[in-house]
Every structure is written in structure tokens, then in C-alpha cells.
Design a binder for these strands. Structure first.
Length: 919
RNA sequence: GGGCGGGUAGCUCAGUGGUAGAGCGUCGGCCUUACAAGCCGAACGUCGCAGGUUCGACCCCUGUCCCGCCCACCA
């Protein structure tokens, strides 16, 4: 074994081994009676590349799955990819653009073919990368949302919902993305917060008389579609205008003045509001209240149509300027003011979304939401962390109907057929023979496709075979157990899966929702390619030069400032850390935090940890090799040696800690427990202490120690395996075992009562030993006593147990401290050694004579005295408070009393020690 | 406008009604034959601010100031 662990080759080797050995394939065999554990993977975009968010998902999910597998569950982790409708289509359109083409040049059929080609070329790569991270998903059950089975499920779901009256077609105001030329659901519209905009005022002349009515708008071009001006019915300024009209300045239209108490706030602006029913949410409602005409101004691409008169053909923003200029020119502009506003933007294209009137397909959500709310209320589905429940309820209780049709080409076709003659809609898998309305036999299919999240909503059961209720997978593995994902898709995905799952299967799709925070960069900023703060997990794992990082960022369209940031942050590129280190680092973040500000430093910490584990194993195996020691899976029956008893007790504790941490989905606690056990206890103490024992003349001591060492190492590997699968497999395979499965991933997960041994006495005794050693080392360090110089330590304790331990372990202590230690019979004897460093480790005290006196010693004692006095003041005050004595629990009071005594004594010791120092 | 989360050591973050923790960084000492990606020590915090509850508050309550996010049709 080389002294430094090299993860890359090792990880690739075991990745292959696991795949070839089919260790992760779930069983549907009739005679397999193991309980099942099912998890579905949030399907990444089929043509996407792995980013740190996927690494996060993979890690959390893989830890869950690997542990369950080791605990004997028939485990199924369903991998798959999403066709990601709009996202994928946008990418391919961009490719075409580079060739000087648009999708319309190709036509629908060829364009879709082109996407399929791109999918074949790049698809699945992401799942390979997930495997590279150690993801132990069942590749034999990989799914894709557009494959035939799942497309069938989508079609079936649509038809059923339609027949149940839960899907309907409606003409109303919707969000329009002029760049992608499709409608969007409310969720796909993001609001850009608080941008400073302009509120532009202009006047409408009153028709047939003198005077004008001044209105304000942030979108002046919409005045071309105004069909009313609204005022508050009780506004005294405008009582004389009730029932009158204004004149449109450039279009040949009279516009009614209506009164509307809902729309108009008389306090705001002039108290008069222009009404554009076809392009504004409030105005649409207002229009309905007053029966106003709706004038659509926009073409699908965001240019103005024939309704715009002289402005026809202009882009919406161009038209905005032109309309303003025109109003200025004819003297109707009335100035403008700065105005803070929020802009709606398309999640995908980033363009400003326009409300337009359009006919689309919708899902009626309230009936679906009710049972989904109930499932969380009554605990059938648990949301972890619980805080998210409130958010879930809030959204579900105010749910809007879901617009599911998209004017895209890449996606599931809508199983709706229109009669060519009478336009009657028929929803079915295939067109009917004859139209039920007019008897005609010619139909045309709806040209739209479904929102990509519609198929995602079915994912937990469509991947298992639904709507075939006889599917072996569906019967055995549904409902699934946990659903792990980022909170950003709680509404997009999780809520909709719950609704659809309950509706179509009558069961919850999963019992628990585990929501994790979003990975951000070290500054806490959201990662984005343009910002250039994206860390490629593969680079973190394998290492990358700054040149290649910059090249990649450039290709992804990062700005210059982003490149500068990268250069500054990673001047030497990225070192090789390995997948295990990345996984541990991700695990170490508390799940409650909403952002995971991943830092390279943190990953380095765990890279160092893998190396520590590697070397501890190297040392252990070196000492075990050739001794015939075999790992049996259980500890020595009656260990005699204190350090062996101690480490087995600590092992029990760490198993409990890790188990509890993982049970509570606290990866941070689990990883921290095993980290500190391995490093601070196993390496720093146990391995050091075993060195003399392994070389002991007494054979039984050496044998017991080897067995313990072997056992603790082997158990720790199993304990750690879900978090760090690769290195644990690598070392585990080198261990000589009596009997074991072919991979650690199938070995039993440790149980405290089996692998460990509770032994509070040994733990106590080791604490005495450790604090004695640490104190002696501290004295050495503080008095500049190098290890090469031997020192004497005199100690005394009235307690027999402590005395016994120190005497029994004298050799070990002397070895670790380089001191010669002497027990003295009475406390007075300690006084004989003057000009000395003294120490108190209740109930033990000691003296190190002959240490060099120095100013440093005076300073040190002075500092300590100050601290003691400060504590003393706090404790005295506390004990001087009668209420404290009365009300606080007896143990607490007693503890404080003891502490007071100790501190008082310490103060006396320190004072006299200072006094005894030569001037 | 509503809701949620956060403000703890120089940095990144854990944490509990009863003497404040980790990693990194800093300082000092070590090449002690598993590991210098290491070993041995040390220093560093009136736990955002102000009130309140309590014998006791970093923790509970109220207010307040910052930061981040989500939802919402204010022209």
C-alpha cells in the first residue's frame, strides 16, 4: 500500500466492479422475502451534464440506499432521465442557430428527429457520471420520460383526467414567452425583484368636451389595446365623468370611462387607470366585470400585430419607445416618475413574459390538492425538515389551475383530436371513427405538447409499470419510501407527484419527502454558468488545471468578470480530491440550511480524511499481515486490555451516533461522528497505544490487540461505506475475513450491540489516562521542554481507581509523554518539589519539578489565575443567590458547589505558585 | 404586501434552558519508522441590537436592524 491514497484509479475500478457484479439490481423473485426499500431518482435532464446539484442528490440518496441495502433490504433505486421539454428544445435550437437555422427551417418532424439524435449522442452520459460518484442505482431499470411505456402512461393519465373533468380547455389570459413562443405555467415565471422602472403618465382627451383624464403605466405600448379607463365610483374628482368616453389619440376608438372599486385605488397616482384586458391580469378581470372587448396586440414573437395601427410590426420594446414619442409629439405626455416594480421573466429563456389571451389546456387543481394536503396533515407523508410543511400547505391551499399545454415540439403529444369540419374536441389515444358532433371522419391532432412536469408528476409509478397494475415492480416497490430532492422543486415536482400519485394509485407515492438546500458557491451565491461560479464535480474529483476550468467556463458563456473570479479563486486549478471526499463534504452540511455554500477547503478536509483512513488502514494491515488474524465480524469475547475495551466501547458509541444521525437524516451528525471517531480516537489514541501492545512479549495481549484492531477497522469501514463507498471497498477487500460477501456493499451494516461493547468503566479510566497525558504534554509545550529532554512527573490522588489506572498504564503513559512518572503517597509530598509546574486534574494533582522558570511561566500562571477568578466570581454569585439554591435541581447546585471548591483551591495554588516564582 | 430562513471565533458553519463547539486559518514546538494531506500544544467569541419571561437565556417571548429566499395582478 502506498503512503498516499490515490482515488481516481481506485474509484473507477470499483465502479466497474459494482456494475459488472450487478450488486444494485433489485429483486422481483417470488422467494425473495426481504423488506423492500424504494427510492426514485429525480430524473436529470437527459442531455444535461452533471453539476454539483446532481452530486448532492446522488450523495444523499446513495447514502440512504447503500445503508438500507447493507441492512438487508431489497433495495431499488430507480434511475432515469427527463426529456426536459423546453430546456432541451432551447439547447437544440441554439445549436441550430450556430448553423444559421431555426427549427422552422427544419420543420417539426426533422427538428424532433434532430433532438432525438442529440439525445442519443449525449443522453445517459449524466447517469454514467452519477455512477462515477458512486450512485448505486439499478441501471437495469433505467427510465426515460419519453420512452414508449412512459409516454403511454402520460397519455393514459391525460385521458383519464379529461374524462373525469379534471382537464379542460379554456381561453383566458396566460403567460407568454415570446422567445420560446410558448405559454408557461405560473411556476415557470420568475419575478425579477425590485427593478427600478418608469411610471409614464399621459392624458386621454375627454370625448365631446374639454378636459382630459391622466393615466399612468409602466408599459405605454399597451395603451394601443386599452378598451376602458377606470375610475373609482366615489372619487369626487371624477364624478362628472361617469358614463362618458375618452378618445384614443391615434386609433379610431372611443373608450368608455368605467367605475370600478376593485381595480382602482383613488389614493394611487391620478386615481384613473387604463384598462387593457388582453394584456394585464387585473385588467382582464376588470374587463370581464364590465364586458369590455379584449384587443390582442401581440404576435407570438412579441411584435405588434395589425391592431397596433402604425406601430404594427414593431417589437414590443421598440413600440414602447415609439408610443411614448408619439404621445410626446402630440402633447399628451404628462411626464414620468421612477417606479420600483417587479418584472416577470421566463425561467428558461429569461425574456420578459407577456400576459396574452390564448386557448390552452388546464388541470383543475383543487380536487387533486385536497387529498394531497390531507396526506401531509395526517402524516401519511412526512416532510423533512418540517419547516417546509407550512410552505407546502400555503401553496396547496392557494393553488392555481395548471396550464399544461406548450407550443413546443419536443414533448408528449396531447391525445386530443379536432374534427376538421366542426372543430369538436375528442380526447382519446387515437382519433375516433366519426365525429360525435357532426359525423365527419377527418381529424387533426392537437399540435401542442405537454408541460414536461406533467410526465414528471407520474414518475414514481410510471417508472414502475403503471398503468399496468399487474406490473411486478409496481406491486412490490410501490409506494416508494423516500423522495429526496432540492426544495426548489417542491411545487414543480413534489407536490404534483403527491397529487397525481394519490389520484391514480390511491396511495401516496412516497412516505417521506427529504428536502435539501441548494448548493451555492463559497460566497453563498447561486451557481450559474454566466456568473462562472459553477464548480464541475468531476473537476473536483479528478482535479483540473485552471486553464481547463477557464476554457470550460468560456465555452459555457461565462462573462469576463466570471473568468476573473475563477482565476482568482482557483489560481492553481483544482487538486484531485476523489468522489469519497466530495461526498463526505456534501454530507457534512446540516440539512436544515437552505444553502450549501460548498467550499473547496471543506472538500480538502475530507480528502485529508480519506488519506488518514488510508494510512490508518495501512498501519493496521501491516501489523496484521502474516499473523493469521481474521476478521470475524464480532469483537474479542472478553478483552482484558484497557485500550481494547475502551476502543470497543467507543465503537459502540460511534455506531449509535452514526445510526441515529442517518435515521434522523442528519448526514452532518453522522459524518462528524465517524470522522472524529476515526481521527481523534482511533488514530490519535488507539493506534498510538497499540504500538507497544502489538509488540508485547505477552502473546495473549498481542493477540487480543490484533483481533480488536482488525475488528474495529473492519467495522468502521462498514460504518463509513454508505458515505465513502470507494475507499472503504478498497481497504475492505484487503482484509482477511472468515466469511463475507464479495463486496462491502452487501456486508451487514454495523449495530452497536453486535460490533461494539458498552464499557463505561473503561471509558472513564481512559479519560483519566488521556487527561494525564495531555496535561503533561501541555506542560512540556509551555515550558519549552522538547521531547528529547526527559522530565519527571509526580502525582497523587486520593482515589484508588484513578491511582490503579495510572499505575497499571504507567508504561503507556511514559511512552506517550516521554516523562518518568512517580506516584507519591500524600499530597504534602508534592510540596517538596519546588519551583515547579503544578497541575490539577480532579481528583488528581501533580507536580513537574525542575522546569525552567521564566517570564512566560509567570504570564501563563497570571492568565490562568485571571480566568479562575472570573469563573469564581460567576459561581459565587450564582451560589449566593437564594433563589438558585431553592429552585435549581439539586445536582446542578451540587455541581456548582464542587466547582466553587475546586476553583477556590486552584486560585490558592496559582497564587502561591506565582509568589514562589523568583523575581 | 404576505410568508420563510439566517445573523455564534478571522472565514465557513454546528449547537443546547444550567461553565460556548468543529473544520479551515493564526501562533509555538515536532521529519516520534501509518500518515507533513501528518504529529504535539496554544490563542481567539459580552452567541446582530433592545427589552421581557426565568433562580439562570446564545437557546423561550416581544420589538428592532441587517442579509437571503419564496409567494403575490397594484396601474
Amino acid at each position: 500500500m502506498p503512503p498516499t491514497y490515490s482515488p481516481i484509479e481506485t474509484e473507477e475500478r470499483w465502479s466497474r466492479f459494482w456494475e459488472e457484479g450487478e450488486f444494485f439490481t433489485a429483486s422481483v423473485a417470488h422467494d425473495d422475502v426481504r423488506p423492500t426499500y424504494t427510492l426514485v431518482m429525480p430524473p436529470p435532464n437527459v442531455t444535461g451534464t452533471l453539476h454539483i446539484g446532481h452530486a448532492c442528490r446522488t450523495t444523499f440518496e446513495d447514502v440512504l440506499v447503500r445503508r438500507k441495502r447493507m441492512q438487508g433490504f431489497n433495495t431499488l433505486w430507480v434511475p432515469g432521465t427527463d426529456h426536459a421539454g423546453i430546456a432541451t428544445q432551447v439547447v437544440v435550437e441554439r445549436q441550430l442557430k450556430r448553423e444559421g437555422l431555426t427549427r422552422h427551417d427544419l420543420g417539426r418532424e426533422r427538428f424532433i428527429k434532430r433532438i432525438w439524435e442529440w439525445k442519443e449522442q449525449s443522453g445517459g452520459a449524466i447517469l454514467k457520471q452519477i455512477q462515477r460518484l458512486g450512485g448505486s442505482c439499478d441501471r437495469s431499470r433505467e427510465r426515460f420520460t419519453m420512452e414508449p411505456d412512459l409516454s403511454y402512461a402520460v397519455q393514459e393519465a391525460f385521458i383519464r383526467l379529461y374524462n373525469e373533468g379534471l382537464i379542460y380547455r379554456d381561453t383566458r389570459l396566460v403567460n407568454w414567452d415570446v422567445e420560446s413562443r410558448t405559454v408557461l405555467s405560473d411556476l415557470e415565471v420568475e419575478t425579477e425583484q425590485q427593478v427600478s422602472g418608469e411610471l409614464f403618465d399621459f392624458a386621454y382627451p375627454i370625448e365631446g368636451e374639454e378636459g382630459e383624464l391622466v393615466v399612468s403605466t409602466t408599459r405605454p405600448e399597451t395603451m394601443l389595446g386599452d378598451t376602458a379607463v377606470a375610475i373609482h365610483p366615489e372619487d369626487p374628482r371624477y364624478l362628472h365623468l361617469h358614463g362618458k368616453y375618452v378618445r384614443h389619440p391615434f386609433l379610431d376608438r372611443s373608450i368608455p370611462i368605467v367605475t370600478d372599486a376593485i381595480l382602482v385605488d383613488p389614493e394611487f397616482g391620478t386615481g384613473a387607470v387604463k384598462v387593457t384586458p388582453a394584456h394585464d391580469w387585473n385588467d382582464f378581470e376588470t374587463g370581464k366585470r364590465h364586458g369590455l372587448p379584449q384587443i390582442n396586440l401581440l404576435n407570438p414573437d412579441g411584435t405588434l400585430n395589425e391592431e397596433a395601427g402604425e406601430f404594427q410590426g414593431m417589437d414590443r420594446f421598440e413600440a414602447r419607445k415609439a408610443v411614448k414619442a408619439r404621445l410626446e409629439a402630440i402633447g399628451l405626455a404628462r411626464g414620468s416618475t421612477k417606479h420600483m416594480m417587479t418584472l416577470p421573466r421566463s425561467q428558461r429563456s429569461g425574456t420578459i413574459v407577456e400576459p396574452i389571451i390564448s386557448t390552452q389546456w388546464f388541470v383543475r387543481m383543487e380536487p387533486l390538492a385536497a387529498p394531497a394536503i390531507e396526506a401531509v396533515e395526517n402524516g401519511t407523508i412526512q416532510i423533512v425538515p418540517e419547516d417546509w410543511q407550512k410552505t407546502y400547505f400555503h401553496w396547496m391551499r392557494n393553488i392555481h389551475n395548471w396550464c399544461i399545454s406548450r407550443q413546443l415540439w419536443w414533448g408528449h403529444p396531447i391525445p386530443a383530436w379536432y374534427c376538421k369540419k366542426c372543430e369538436q374536441v375528442h380526447v382519446a389515444a387515437s382519433p375516433p371513427q366519426t365525429c360525435t358532433a357532426c359525423g365527419n371522419d377527418e381529424f387533426v391532432q392537437d399540435e401542442d405538447v405537454l408541460d414536461t412536469w406533467f410526465s414528471s408528476a407520474l414518475w414514481p409509478f410510471s417508472t414502475l409499470g403503471w398503468p399496468n397494475t399487474e406490473s411486478r415492480e409496481l406491486k412490490r416497490f410501490y409506494p416508494t419510501a423516500d423522495l429526496e430532492t432540492g426544495y426548489d422543486i417542491l411545487f414543480f415536482w413534489v407536490a404534483r407527484m403527491i397529487m397525481m400519485g394519490l389520484h391514480f394509485t390511491g396511495q401516496v407515492p412516497f412516505k417521506r419527502v427529504l428536502l435539501a438546500g441548494l448548493v451555492t458557491d463559497e460566497r453563498g451565491e447561486k451557481m450559474s454558468k454566466v456568473k462562472g461560479n459553477v464548480i464541475d464535480p468531476i473537476d473536483v474529483i479528478q482535479g483540473a488545471s485552471i486553464e481547463s476550468i477557464l476554457a470550460k467556463a468560456k465555452q459555457a458563456g461565462a462573462k469576463d468578470s466570471a473568468l476573473k473570479y475563477l482565476k482568482k479563486t482557483y489560481p492553481d486549478g483544482l487538486a484531485t480530491h476523489g468522489a469519497d471526499a466530495l461526498r463526505m463534504a456534501l454530507m457534512s452540511y446540516a440539512p436544515g440550511s437552505r444553502r450549501i455554500a460548498l467550499s473547496i477547503k471543506r472538500i480538502e478536509t475530507y480528502r485529508n480524511f480519506t488519506n488518514k483512513l488510508w494510512n490508518a488502514s495501512r498501519f493496521s494491515l501491516m501489523n496484521l499481515e502474516g499473523t493469521g488474524t481474521q476478521s470475524t465480524g464480532s469483537p474479542p469475547v472478553n478483552p482484558e486490555v484497557l485500550v481494547n475495551r475502551w476502543i470497543l466501547a467507543r465503537l459502540a458509541t460511534v455506531i449509535e451516533g452514526v445510526t441515529q444521525g442517518l435515521d434522523e437524516y442528519r448526514g452532518d451528525e453522522a459524518s462528524s461522528a465517524v470522522y472524529h471517531f476515526l481521527w481523534d480516537e482511533f488514530c490519535d489514541w488507539y493506534l498510538e497505544l497499540t504500538k507497544p501492545l502489538l509488540a508485547s512479549d505477552r502473546r495473549e495481549i498481542a493477540v487480543e490487540t490484533r483481533q480488536t484492531l482488525m475488528h474495529v477497522l473492519e467495522t468502521t469501514l462498514r460504518l463509513l461505506h454508505p458515505m465513502m463507498p470507494f475507499i472503504t471497498e478498497e481497504i475492505w477487500q484487503r482484509i482477511d475475513k472468515t466469511e463475507a460477501p464479495t463486496s462491502i456493499c452487501l456486508a451487514p451494516y454495523p449495530v452497536a450491540a453486535v460490533e461494539g461493547r458498552a464499557d463505561p468503566e473503561a471509558v472513564r479510566e481512559m479519560e483519566h489516562l488521556k487527561s494525564f497525558v495531555v496535561k503533561t504534554r501541555t506542560i512540556r509545550a509551555e515550558h519549552d521542554l522538547p521531547n528529547s529532554r526527559s522530565i519527571d512527573v509526580y502525582w497523587h490522588t486520593p482515589e484508588a481507581q484513578v491511582a490503579r489506572v495510572l499505575e497499571e498504564q504507567q508504561a503507556l503513559i511514559e511512552r506517550l509523554t516521554g516523562a518518568t512518572i512517580h506516584r507519591v503517597k500524600t499530597p504534602e509530598e508534592l510540596q517538596h518539589h519546588t519551583a515547579a509546574a503544578t497541575f490539577v486534574l480532579e481528583p488528581l494533582r501533580g507536580v513537574v519539578p525542575d522546569v525552567v522558570d521564566s517570564e512566560r511561566e509567570r504570564e501563563r500562571l497570571g492568565r490562568e489565575l485571571k480566568r479562575v477568578e472570573k469563573d469564581l466570581a460567576i459561581v459565587s454569585k450564582k451560589l449566593g443567590n437564594p433563589s438558585f439554591i431553592d429552585r435549581a435541581p439539586a445536582e446542578v447546585v451540587q455541581k456548582e458547589r464542587t466547582r466553587l471548591a475546586t476553583l477556590t483551591e486552584q486560585r490558592a495554588k496559582l497564587s502561591s505558585a506565582i509568589a514562589a516564582l523568583p523575581a
